[in-house]
Structures are given as structure tokens and as C-alpha cells.
Design a protein around this nucleic acid. Structure first.
Lengths: 338, 338
DNA sequence: GTGATTCAGGATAACGTTTTCTTGCGGATG
DNA sequence: CATCCGCAAGAAAACGTTATCCTGAATCAC
């Protein structure tokens, strides 16, 4: 079943069938109708590979993430797919598994598939790799890394906005000792979030104590461990900001495991607003990083660049937003006094 | 950059280059080496679309799931991708969003992309749709639904095995009143899990009380609500089995919200063993449904069928396994007595 | 009425591979 | 020495579209 059979049945040339399928205005309404009829009768659907080969456009966007198992990503993937399908494109996602070697393979696969653009939502992309990509004049969009340039755009997360709001919220409640659980120091994203936190404290005139800064591993267990360390301190913080929700959940678990309660004894604030955060008990106060918004920016960037390849990329800025829920409250008085 | 340039540089024909790339044994070692050299020098990578068009094989498997946001799926997707990439294939995943109309579109997209096979891990697939797929002689594998046939296989989950183990575990601890939180009655998977539970109770000689069977929505909040209802009962169960982990987590939240504790006052058992279950507090005892195993079966089924299209599909059986963690313990004595 | 101008639609050459025939050629066989 | 065989490698025909030219008819201006 191919375009020729359709052409024969509709008594037109294959060119006309192709034009009809692609919605060209160079075909008379009644002819188009005849073609559509034939397509329906034969239950024809075009071969994407041939289309891509003929036109040079694959109608495919690549999405590179580190690990779909990280709860930050599923919503991003879903949003991106939804938007793409809406626009008649498809997506192909690849997990790098935080491994540069696999990242290289992912990129290669994208190139081989002749994607129309690729969204790189992970920081394992080394500069030489990014450059190699750039040489292919492939529309790209990075999250929080790289620089905009020819056909490559950039989504910047304004961490400070979110962290400032969170810290204000806590000081507003009366907290004066605020702890921070960071991700692994090696990660770029860790540095950005930590910096934003330190800046916020300084701005609010709160003293920074080194022992209140604990390193986690971006997972629940690391959050628990980091919280345990904070709990053993002589001068414990009364509130804790974790640099992602998973660690915040771990911190809550550690607190409860000690027979203490959130938010009675400690306030906890997360980061990301993964889906589960809204429904656990207590519901997590957190800094939302809208995955839908990220996906939308990424798509717009790729779409624009893939339709005009000599276009300069631009920068998109996304402001996180504080979502206040049940895990924050004023500190206990006896703590406050101490 | 195409195969011709490589051919010219290596002073061979395009056919030989193609053969070399595909590892044919019809090319002399030293010629192959020369070709590989040329490929490396030119930094050549083949065009997948042309390959697919020429050979009729896309090296692409489709994976249809309901919603990547459902924590059951990410691990399945990752495993499937890993296995596929290992074998030189790629995957393209589509979310149906539990919507039959979108499911139809997903199927169509798979057909257009000329996938070598499709794994349908969702139950929104209506029979006529499945039939339309079957007519294309496309290798398929279903999870828990449909029947094996020409080129279509089937993965069956042996719910009873897992549920029996869980119920035995609970009765072994001394529980005599066991509640059950099911998914929405409309779902096929709900029926299967519920039936397995009722069978297990009957087998263990435990009375079944209708009010101990509560319907949830497969999400955390539904689990909480269902648990609330169980807590208001005059004769509360002392243990609860939820038909997925999310609802079990919700149940734990509801129990804690009432000032009670798990497993001191209630034992809770989940189903699926999603990643988070191991690290929350208390860690969830649950019936593991290995996504890795499912992915592996699905891949094997597709791989076999796509390499020999006139092969009859087979049935794969997967036995869930009880993972005992911290959310189960003997019932409180005062409860037991009552 | 003549030439210019649209415009629908046909012919056909790409697109970059794979694959099926062929074709030499060197060596084994009788 | 003639013949056959095996085997590496080349020529060229698919594969199913899209896109670039063309063509011929109809419309229009003058």
C-alpha cells in the first residue's frame, strides 16, 4: 500500500496525492476530496521514513534526559510529548543515565534519526559534544547550561526568585535558623541552588553556619541522612530547605523517625514540586519548577529554530514559584527561645 | 555526507560500504578495515530513514503506556530502552493518557513509523484496534490482556502468587481482619487484583467482610480516603493490602494523620514496589512486580517475532514477589483480643 | 484576437540506503 | 589445460515519498 495506489484510485498523479496529504493549496477542492476519499477507502497511511528521506524533515524532536526514573522528568516528558503531538511532531526520548559515554550514544542516535531538533535537559553534555552537535546546524535547546547561539536556545531557571520566596516565607513565620540540604557537590545544578540559598540568607540578614549546610544525594535516603546530621547538631535549625523534593521527603521521614513531627517541630521546604509532594502527609511546601513551562519553552525554541535555521536562538527565563502547603509552620517557642 | 563519499574515499562501491556497516561476512577483512577507516575520517553516520526505507526494518520498537507520570511506568520504560539499545534497537514511547482516541493516534503513529514491533502495556487497547494492528502482521506483545497469536505474545502476571504470599505473611503475623483498597472498579487490572485477594482470603479461611473492601483511585489521595473509611469502621481491620503502592502510601498518611502509627497500630502492604516505596518511612512491605522482568519479556517477545514473522507468539508468566519491609508487624494485642 | 498570466496538476529526479543480480578472478578439480 | 566453483566486490534497481520543473488550459488585458 503506497501513494501510487492511492493516485491510481483517485485518478491523479502521486504528486497530487502528496500535495493533498501535506495540505498544499495548489490542489482544487474537489480533487483533494477525491484523493481523501481514496485514502480512506484504501486505509492508507504514509511511510514516515520515505517522507523524512524525501523532505529532509523527520518531524521528530529528540529529548535527552538523565533518567526517566528521576521524578522530575516524567512530567516534563509528558508535557513535551503532548505539545509536540499537538503540533504534528513526535518525540524520541533518550536516557543518559548520568553517563557521558551513553550521552554520546544518545546524541549519535538523534543525529542518525535526523531529528529536527533536540532538547537537552541534562547537564552531562560536555562542551565538545555540544559543539559537535552545533556543527550539524541542529536546532538545540539547553536547560540551565550552555549559551544561546545560531539555532540554539537556552532556558534559564531563576533559582533566586524561588529560594528568596521560600526563605522569606520561613523568616516570616519566625524561623531564624534555616538549614539547607544540597545535592551532590559535583552537579552544576547543586551549585546554582546552593548559591541562591546563600544569597537569600545574606539578603535577609541571617547568619550562615557551615554545619547547617549538609550534602545529600538527590534521593530520599540521602535526604534522611543529611537530616539526621542536622538533628544531631547542638544548635539545630528550626527549618530546612532541601534542594529537591525527594530529599525533603527523606528529611520528613528522618524527623518522624525520631519521634518528632513536621511542621510542629521542624518546617521543611522542598524544591521542584514533583507530583507526589502534594499528596503525602504532611503535604510538602515547595518551590515549584513548572515542567509544563519548561517543556513549552523548549518546544517553542525548537519549533522556531527548525522552521528557520538561520535564526539566532534566544533565552527563555522561567521563574519558580513558592507553593505553601502543610510542611511549614511557625517554630516551636522553646526552640525559638534557645 | 553520505555513503557515496565514503565509498569514493575507500575506493569501493556503495554496496561494500553498506555491507561493512551491517557486518556482512562477504567483505574481505582488509577492505572492511579500509572502509571503517574512511568512515572514521569522514565522521560518517548513516541516515536511519534511508536505511529503514531500503531494508524495510526500522530498528525501532514502539512502547505504548498509559501515562509516564504513573510511577509504575518509568522503570519499565528505562529497562525496555536499556535492553533495546543494547541490542541495537531504539524505542519510541507514546502515552495514551487513558484515552482511547489518543490510543488510536498512538497506534497510527507507530504504524507510520514502521516500527518493528510494539509493546502495549496499557489496557485502553480496544479489541478492534488490536485487530487492526494484527492485520498489519506487526509483532505485538500485550501485558495482561489479549491473547497470543501469530506474531503476538502475551505477558501474564500471576497476581495470586503475590497476593497469597502477602496474605500468608499477614496471617502469619497474627492478623485476622485484613482490609483491601482496590483501584477503580472500571479497570481490568482492578478486577484481577481484587479477585486474587478474595481467593487468598478464602483459601486461608478468613471471613470476607464487604465493608473491609474499599475502592480507591490508584492515587495517593484515593488511598487516604479509602483508609479513612476503614478507620471509621466499628470493627477495623488490623492490616490493609492496597492494590498499588501509591494508595498504600496514602493509607499510611491517613493513619499517621489520625495520630496512629504504622506498623504499630496497622500493618500496610502495597503492590508494585515502585522505587519510592523502599525509602519512605516506614519502608513499605509490598508485592513486587518487576518492571525489569516485564520489559525483558516484552523485548524478547518482540525480538523473536520481528526476526521471524511467521512465528507463533507465546505466553510469558511473571510471578510477583513479596518484599517484606517495615510497614508490617504483629497486630496490637488489644486489637487482636477484641 | 493575440499575447501575457494564472493555476491545477503531471513527469520525474532526487533523497540515502539495501539488496539482488552480475562480473571478474584466483584457485581447485578432473 | 580446460572447466567449474567460490567469493569478493561492483552496477543498478528497488524502497515511498517530496519537490522541482513543466505543460496545457483557462482567464485576462488590451
Amino acid at each position: 500500500m503506497n501513494i501510487q495506489e492511492v493516485a491510481r484510485r483517485a485518478a491523479v498523479s502521486t504528486a497530487t496525492v502528496s500535495r493533498t496529504i501535506n495540505g498544499s493549496d495548489k490542489v482544487a477542492p474537489k480533487t483533494a476530496e477525491r484523493v481523501r476519499q481514496a485514502i480512506k477507502e484504501l486505509n492508507f497511511y504514509p511511510n514516515t521514513n520515505a517522507r523524512a528521506l524525501g523532505s529532509g524533515r523527520s518531524r521528530l524532536y529528540g529529548l535527552i534526559i538523565s533518567d526517566i526514573t528521576n521524578p522530575f522528568f516524567p512530567e516534563l516528558v509528558r508535557s513535551f510529548e503532548e505539545i509536540a503531538v499537538e503540533a504534528g511532531q513526535e518525540i524520541i526520548v533518550a536516557n543518559t543515565g548520568y553517563d557521558p559515554k551513553r550521552t554520546e550514544m544518545c546524541v549519535r542516535r538523534m543525529l542518525e534519526r535526523k531529528v529536527d531538533g533536540v532538547a537537552i535537559m541534562t547537564s552531562e553534555m560536555s562542551d565538545p559534544m555540544a559543539e559537535r552537535l552545533g556543527q550539524n546546524r541542529l536546532p538545540m535547546v539547553f536547560l540551565d547550561t550552555g549559551v544561546a547561539g545560531l539555532a540554539t536556545s537556552n532556558i534559564l531557571l531563576d533559582y533566586s526568585r524561588g529560594v528568596d520566596a521560600a526563605v522569606s516565607h520561613l523568616t516570616g513565620l519566625g524561623h531564624e535558623r534555616i538549614g539547607f540540604i544540597s545535592g551532590p557537590r559535583a552537579f552544576e545544578s547543586t551549585r546554582m541552588r546552593s548559591d541562591a540559598f546563600l544569597r537569600a540568607l545574606r539578603q535577609q540578614g541571617i547568619a550562615i553556619r557551615d554545619e547547617h549546610l549538609q550534602e545529600g544525594n538527590n534521593h530520599i535516603d540521602g535526604g534522611s541522612l543529611a537530616m539526621e546530621r542536622l538533628l544531631q547538631l547542638e544548635e539545630r535549625p528550626t527549618a530546612v530547605l532541601a534542594s529537591n523534593d525527594l530529599m525533603a521527603i527523606g528529611a520528613v521521614g528522618a524527623i518522624h523517625g525520631r519521634g518528632l513531627a513536621v511542621p510542629r517541630d521542624f518546617s521543611v521546604v522542598g524544591f521542584d514540586d514533583i507530583e507526589i509532594s502534594a499528596s503525602i502527609y504532611p503535604a510538602l511546601t515547595t518551590i515549584r519548577l513548572s515542567r509544563r513551562e519548561i517543556a513549552s519553552c523548549a518546544f517553542r525554541a525548537l519549533y522556531a529554530a527548525s522552521h528557520d535555521r538561520k535564526m539566532e536562538g534566544r533565552e527563555y527565563r522561567i521563574a519558580p514559584e513558592l507553593i505553601v502547603r502543610g510542611s511549614t509552620a511557625p517554630p516551636r517557642l522553646d526552640c525559638k527561645r534557645r
